[in-house]
């Protein structure tokens, strides 16, 4: 039997033919990175390879690293393997990594989302023999409504708040979700104020040519009265902190795929939960897997046991792989 294209080692996903890892959590010599979230792009590797679009955020987060870049679709030879990066639709610059060894093709998809969001490079299905998939929302209770509907809901909340004289305070992770929400918000309603953590990432993305609506960074001098009708975008951790005091009466909102579930929404104890995720929903996962034509599917983080059983019943060779990827956490404020 031939050696598999990709194997699963204590350091992470490994390609023996090319002697490289994909999104490793242990320290390695050569790391191919799908995207800049902290559970996929970690510090401490000797050499990195990522898409040119992902590189600025990775550099911003990891500092001075030896990072080589590659364009989407460009094929590159590493040892006996040929690799190429393809849009994953998760966050700007995110990629699925295709690895081919002797005609056998394996795709590690990292995190992905199938619905185009108008911000990041739309997901591109890649034909392969083996597909490594996440299953963060791998249950049929997770089905996202079209982004336009959620955007309308979000903007209506903003308008209602503006009318009632309260400040809408929207919690979102500073890389990815925050910019996605920016793209969904209607700047005609009022000014958008941002927390420093969000604004830092905005600056990095704007510098690489991403178009985002105008934002105003909140400083110690910022007062709500100077920005009537404003919406505030901040990391979730800021929502419960003293940082919000300067805005007076607020209405809190949180955007996450988990907001689909009432119990989790209530536990967050925010006024409004908006179902917005950068991960594929149930239909998205199933459609993506079908589009690859893969016979073998390795399920990483999320509802791995349930989702792999479902795939097995559908006639695929599905297995579970234990990784240290987290996906969109229901509880902590990481990623």
């Amino acid at each position: 039997m031939r050696a598999p294209v990709l194997t699963f080692t204590p350091n992470g996903i490994y390609c023996p033919a090319g002697d490289f890892h994909i999104d490793p959590w242990g320290r390695v010599d050569r790391a191919l990175i799908t995207h800049g979230h902290s559970d996929h792009a970690r510090a401490g590797h000797a050499r990195y390879l990522a898409t040119a679009a992902a590189a600025p955020v990775i550099r911003h987060r990891l500092g001075a690293i030896e990072l080589d870049t590659i364009a989407y679709g460009e094929r590159r030879r590493i040892g006996d393997a040929t690799v190429s990066f393809h849009p994953a639709g998760h966050v700007p610059g995110s990629a699925q990594i295709r690895v081919e060894v002797g005609g056998e093709v394996c795709v590690a998809s990292g995190d992905y989302k199938t619905e185009p969001d108008g911000l990041c490079e739309p997901f591109e299905p890649v034909r392969c023999h083996s597909f490594i998939t996440e299953s963060t929302f791998g249950l049929p209770v997770f089905r996202w409504r079209p982004q336009a509907e959620v955007a309308a809901e979000l903007n209506q909340w903003w308008r209602d708040c503006a009318q009632a004289g309260v400040t809408p305070l929207l919690g979102a992770y500073s890389f990815g979700k925050a910019q996605r929400l920016l793209a969904m918000l209607d700047p005609a309603i009022g000014p958008i104020l941002t927390h420093g953590a969000v604004e830092n990432t905005n600056a990095v993305l704007r510098a690489q040519g991403l178009r985002l609506p105008e934002t105003v960074q909140v400083t110690p001098e910022t007062r709500a009265t100077d920005h009537p009708g404003a919406l505030v975008l901040a990391p979730p951790s800021a929502l419960g902190s003293t940082w919000v005091r300067r805005f007076g009466a607020v209405s809190t909102g949180f955007a996450s795929g988990w907001m689909q579930l009432r119990g989790i929404r209530r536990r967050r104890s925010v006024d409004r939960g908006f179902v917005v995720s950068d991960h594929a929903d149930w239909d998205g996962l199933n459609a993506a897997i079908a589009a690859t034509g893969a016979e073998n599917v390795f399920v990483t983080h999320g509802y791995t046991e349930i989702f792999s059983r479902w795939l097995t019943e559908r006639g695929l060779n599905a297995g579970i792989v234990k990784t240290e990827f987290r996906g969109e956490a229901a509880e902590d404020d990481a990623a």
């Binding site: 249950l139 049929p140 209770v141 689909q260 579930l261 009432r262 119990g263 509802y303 349930i306 479902w310």
Partner: peptide, 23 residues
Amino acid sequence: LPLWLVEEAHPVVGDLAETIALI
């Protein structure tokens, strides 16, 4: 959907009425 999948989803959602409404 297979019944077992609905049964697995139920404890994640935490409420049968909601689970059914969602699927």
